[in-house]
Amino acid sequence: MQQIHPTAIVEDGAVLGENVKIGPYCMVGPKVTLGDDVELVSHAVIAGRTTIGARSKIFPFASIGHQPQDLKYAGEDTLLEIGEDNQIREHTTMNPGTAGGGGVTRVGNGCLFMMGTHVGHDCLVGNGVIMANNATLAGHVEVEDHVIFGGLSAVRQWCRVGAHSIIGGLTGVEFDVIPYGSVIGDRARLAGLNLIGLKRRNFSREEIHALRGAYKEIFNGEEGTLRSRADAARTNYAGFDGVQTMTKFMLDDEKRSFCTPRKSGE
């Protein structure tokens, strides 16, 4: 049974699943689809061609699906797809895609977007991602699964952020972040591996030891280039999935740049 507050506006054409709750002063546009058990607490606005998966909850003053913050946008009918079991807190903004970026912004399942977070146009966000207060993603950012963003962090357009990595508070990310990495700084520097996150997600002692060895080989080594050392680590740790994930991320596209550790004296 749907529960729609009398002050809410649900436009003709909107598709509502079972047990949807729409609180006071919410607005739901005509191209919106809300899955089963979705709840809009109050004063939330869902616009555009937006789909929100089952059991997601959206808090007051969130602005979801309005046109991208991109001057090239010309009114094309693009998409915002949000998965299941997400929590989208107060004042969060999420924009749909653009014709020049693939036409879709996509958010996975089980994510937490705290107050004031922003997901820009054409972003691809994985599962289990946590964005703390006022963390922001510019357009075209790719975020893999189980990444944590500290408060007031920001990611530049077109960057990739690898799985299980952590971005420190107040950190500005200009280059790709390796899977399992930990970065911090006004311009992000790699500070090591996200060891606490790996332990929390039950990575084995052997897998963590291999990742630490590969990290030292790649980022602390002095011979060859960063990519040649990553290629060597891929071979040296052939039996470890985590190392293979990290090195594949680094070697798939030779044009990418990465956050690296701060050099001595910097």
Results as ranks from 00 to 15, higher is better:
residue 159 C to H: 02
residue 159 C to W: 05
residue 159 C to M: 10
residue 159 C to I: 03
residue 160 R to H: 15
residue 161 V to Y: 10
residue 161 V to Q: 12
residue 161 V to I: 15
residue 162 G to V: 15
residue 162 G to N: 13
residue 162 G to P: 09
residue 163 A to W: 00
residue 163 A to C: 15
residue 164 H to R: 08
residue 164 H to V: 02
residue 164 H to A: 02
residue 165 S to P: 10
residue 165 S to L: 15
residue 165 S to Q: 12
residue 165 S to R: 08
residue 165 S to M: 15
residue 166 I to W: 14
residue 166 I to G: 08
residue 166 I to N: 04
residue 167 I to A: 11
residue 168 G to L: 08
residue 169 G to Q: 13
residue 169 G to R: 14
residue 169 G to F: 15
residue 169 G to D: 09
residue 172 G to N: 11
residue 172 G to F: 13
residue 173 V to T: 05
residue 173 V to E: 07
residue 174 E to W: 08
residue 175 F to V: 09
residue 175 F to W: 13
residue 176 D to Q: 12
residue 176 D to F: 14
residue 177 V to N: 04
residue 177 V to P: 01
residue 177 V to R: 05
residue 178 I to N: 00
residue 178 I to H: 00
residue 179 P to T: 04
residue 180 Y to S: 01
residue 180 Y to L: 02
residue 181 G to C: 09
residue 181 G to F: 07
residue 181 G to L: 13
residue 182 S to W: 09
residue 182 S to I: 11
residue 182 S to A: 14
residue 182 S to K: 10
residue 183 V to P: 01
residue 184 I to N: 07
residue 184 I to A: 13
residue 184 I to R: 07
residue 184 I to F: 15
residue 185 G to H: 14
residue 185 G to C: 11
residue 186 D to Y: 12
residue 186 D to S: 10
residue 187 R to H: 12
residue 187 R to K: 14
residue 187 R to S: 11
residue 188 A to S: 05
residue 188 A to H: 00
residue 189 R to P: 02
residue 189 R to D: 09
residue 189 R to E: 14
residue 189 R to W: 07
residue 190 L to A: 04
residue 190 L to H: 07
residue 190 L to I: 01
residue 190 L to E: 05
residue 191 A to L: 05
residue 191 A to V: 09
residue 191 A to R: 01
residue 191 A to M: 08
residue 191 A to D: 10
residue 191 A to E: 12
residue 192 G to R: 01
residue 192 G to Q: 01
residue 192 G to H: 02
residue 192 G to E: 01
residue 193 L to Y: 04
residue 193 L to F: 11
residue 193 L to C: 08
residue 193 L to P: 04
residue 193 L to T: 08
residue 194 N to S: 09
residue 194 N to E: 09
residue 195 L to S: 11
residue 195 L to Y: 03
residue 195 L to C: 06
residue 196 I to W: 03
residue 196 I to A: 09
residue 197 G to M: 06
residue 197 G to I: 02
residue 198 L to H: 07
residue 198 L to F: 11
residue 198 L to Q: 06
residue 199 K to L: 10
residue 199 K to P: 00
residue 199 K to A: 08
residue 199 K to C: 02
residue 200 R to Y: 10
residue 200 R to Q: 09
residue 201 R to S: 03
residue 202 N to I: 04
residue 203 F to W: 14
residue 203 F to S: 05
residue 204 S to D: 11
residue 204 S to L: 15
residue 205 R to H: 13
residue 205 R to N: 15
residue 205 R to I: 13
residue 206 E to N: 10
residue 206 E to D: 15
residue 206 E to T: 13
residue 207 E to V: 13
residue 207 E to C: 14
residue 207 E to G: 04
residue 207 E to W: 04
residue 209 H to I: 04
residue 209 H to M: 06
residue 209 H to R: 07
residue 209 H to C: 03
residue 210 A to Y: 05
residue 210 A to C: 11
residue 210 A to K: 02
residue 210 A to L: 00
residue 210 A to T: 03
residue 210 A to W: 04
residue 210 A to R: 00
residue 211 L to S: 01
residue 211 L to I: 05
residue 211 L to F: 05
residue 211 L to R: 01
residue 211 L to H: 04
residue 211 L to D: 01
residue 212 R to F: 09
residue 212 R to S: 07
residue 213 G to C: 08
residue 214 A to M: 10
residue 214 A to T: 06
residue 215 Y to H: 11
residue 215 Y to M: 05
residue 215 Y to C: 04
residue 217 E to A: 14
residue 217 E to Y: 02
residue 217 E to V: 09
residue 218 I to F: 10
residue 218 I to L: 12
residue 218 I to C: 12
residue 219 F to I: 05
residue 219 F to C: 01
residue 219 F to A: 11
residue 219 F to N: 07
